[in-house]
């Protein structure tokens, strides 16, 4: 349904209705800005990047073939553009670490016993997520907030679907370990 609405507006834009583009900007500006923030780490650069992304998107709209959803296509432009800016600013090449072999039970849900307040866990989790790498934060946002399928996330970041699965597993494990270690500290302090 969402795709159909976007398609209608894209046709209007391609027919010359520039105002229709404002609908798409309003709809996706938060996510584009958030992704840019996660990669660039600063709001001023992210704002400029997000603006440039929408201009790029407008210029490239005639080449949008509809194979992927518009949101996936837009987020891919955002990701690549933010990385270009990062490379220009820092001069570093951006590499994504991934393992080549599949670990067992990749999608097994991870549980742990918690003896502290749930709200406190969420605060710890929030802090822990902000300390993850920019790629991990992007994956978390796309998977947990936007509910994008792994295939689309793989398309956006430019890695294989299997590697996205591996990265998600590693993110969960990292956060689990962090929560467990924080929980032990809190338990000790509360004695």
């Amino acid at each position: 349904m969402e795709n159909k609405t976007d398609t209608i507006y894209i046709h209007r834009i391609l027919s010359g209705d520039k105002g229709a583009f404002a609908y798409l900007v309003e709809k996706y500006q938060d996510m584009v800005y958030t992704l840019a923030c996660k990669i660039l780490g600063n709001k001023e650069d992210a704002e400029d990047a997000a603006q440039e992304v929408f201009v790029k998107c407008y210029r490239a709209l005639k080449n949008y073939n509809g194979h992927a959803s518009f949101s996936t296509w837009l987020y891919k432009i955002t990701y690549n553009h933010a990385l270009d800016i990062l490379k220009k600013n820092t001069g570093k090449r951006h590499t994504i670490e991934w393992k080549s072999e599949l670990e067992p039970d990749m999608m097994q849900h991870q549980y742990f016993d918690e003896k502290i307040d749930l709200k406190e866990i969420q605060l710890l989790l929030k802090e822990a997520i902000h300390h993850l790498s920019s790629d991990d934060q992007v994956i978390i946002t796309l998977y947990y907030y936007e509910d994008l399928p792994l295939r689309d996330i793989a398309e956006i970041i430019g890695i294989r679907e299997n590697n996205v699965k591996i990265k998600l597993y590693r993110i969960r494990s990292k956060l689990m370990e962090l929560l467990k270690s924080k929980n032990e500290i809190i338990s000790i302090l509360n004695l």
Binding site: Q110, Y111, E114
Partner: peptide
Amino acid sequence: MSHKINIDDLIKNMV
């Protein structure tokens, strides 16, 4: 209070 928590649900709720 001790209970089992699913990390996946936790992350999703937090995000």
